[in-house]
Design a protein around this nucleic acid. Sequence first.
RNA 1: GACUUGGUAGCUCAGCUGGUAGAGCAUAUCACUUUUAAUGAUAGGGUCCUGGGUUCGAGCCCCAGCCAGGUCACCA
Length: 566
Amino acid sequence: MSQQLSEQELVRRESLKKLRDLGINPYPQALYPVNALSKDIKANYEEGKKVIIAGRLMSRRIQGKASFAELQDSEGRIQVYFNRDEICPGDDSTLYNEVYKKLLDIGDFVGIEGVLFKTQVGEISVRVTNFSLLSKSLKPLPLPKTDSEGKVHDAFTDPEQRYRQRYADLVVNPHVKDVFVKRTRLFNAMREFFNTRGYMEVETPVLQPIPGGAAARPFVTHHNALDIPLYMRIANELYLKRLIVGGFEGVYEFSKNFRNEGMDRTHNPEFTAMEIYVAYKDYHWMMEFTEQLLEHCALAVNGTTKATFDGKEIDFKAPYNRVTMRQSIIDFTGFDIAGKSEEELKSWCIQNGIEVDDTMGKGKLIDEIFGEKCEGNYIQPTFIIDYPKEMSPLCKEHRDDPSLTERFELMVCGKEIANAYTELNDPIDQKERFEHQLELAQKGDVEATEFIDYDFLRALEYGMPPTSGLGIGIDRLVMFLTNNPSIQEVLFFPQMKPEKQGLILSDAEKTILDIVKSKSKIDLSELKNAAGLSGKQWDKGMKGLNKNGLIRVEMEGDQKYCVLQD
RNA sequence: GACUUGGUAGCUCAGCUGGUAGAGCAUAUCACUUUUAAUGAUAGGGUCCUGGGUUCGAGCCCCAGCCAGGUCACCA
């Protein structure tokens, strides 16, 4: 398969060949004995120190027999100084004039042995005594430039290209790389927080026969040997609880979840949640645990508990406010939901411009009111507690009010980032709740869960200790901690529609097509002669063109003609 | 799903009421031994997202589609 190469790509391929002709392997096998990183060199500068560094060549300023370049490694960039007489002590200046000046390009990986010094303008640099090509780059990178005032020109900003070619994005946009460094720091901080408390990181199935633990549309796949459908997990909650049944007293998992729903600025088909379950605790304990966890994480990621998101400063310093859902609705609307019937709630909604429909029960109506009138107002981290029972099928009934559950959600900047319960461990109650969900689903509530996980119920029948569980949307938390309003910015490879493949023709196909184009209809054997291709190439070319619907072979009596298709 | 903005050179972006397609950087050639958005000179480089239509003539106008961003709706 051939592809259209740009002028610059052709030049680089030509350089590749010339390097080989000079006996230089552009993709050498041997390890390169790197012993220094750009960042450390700058931090612990020692005049005259010998170093061996490696990285990508990212800029060059050639001035005749001397040249400055920038080498970029995992930690940043450092200036390197190439001097012809230094590199080529004898008469043969090929290494400098040809290899360095002409055959190397921006983007190439090179290894450099050199000596540290400061230039006349005071920039820490490496005087190159020897260099070797480590890997040739054949495709020109986008090339943002930073001027003396720190302003970036020609920045690589097109989101489509950046997401589709994240590798290029990461090479040229250090601030993008930084987001992912912070993302990993967050994972590490959480693990450390849990591990020091004795909780255990576990793994549970991604392929599940019953997708449980959340209300969401799953991806379905099929296991051939078992000949059964399997679902990609939408949550790991039910599996972690089985482990609590099994005797672990604290388990957590960073869970890749998959939901077959719409995509937008805040939803990717696969996303990461962290769930943790701790035995003998309740949701009050979990609130304290959560605020301490987030304070710890914010500090570990950014060095401060404060973070800016969407122009607002938020502070993850514990403790956070706790507001009941009932009180929240009173605060923002003056309406008290306590003791109200479904009819009363519904008519209030209609009067206040909230859309309702017949599938909505009390819980759903209350949730709508909260979502519409309250949610967006919580900028600083705030626990909203005590949710209606109907919308929390896995959560234990409230100790003081049977219409409520012991549940909290943590709101930040008007968005939910954590959800926690005093977990329901009464197997009979749990079964009834599942059955109720099933009824709702059959009534047409798309949010209700339509599977009953009897194995999970069996586990509960053996007995699960009182337990509190917490789920945190990791991607969302990273968004808050790195001030990114889009989930795509915090995922290395956000899901995208497949790139459109332009029709790519082989050389043989092109040759044949050109001839057919010039005649529009041509005798087949005449065409074959004109193309001058080998039998095999001819056959391949014709088949390819036919398959792509570009040409057609027609019979007129004994004569075969090739016709251009449009 | 609705609305909206965009898709032009390797990258960032211009483009006239519709008349042969432009800049900077990058690339190539030359000059230049401590520069730093290096500099100076010269040159090459384009299926203007795709497909239709209107027109003597379309990058530009019209229609349809593809991809992406944003807003909203839906959804945790």
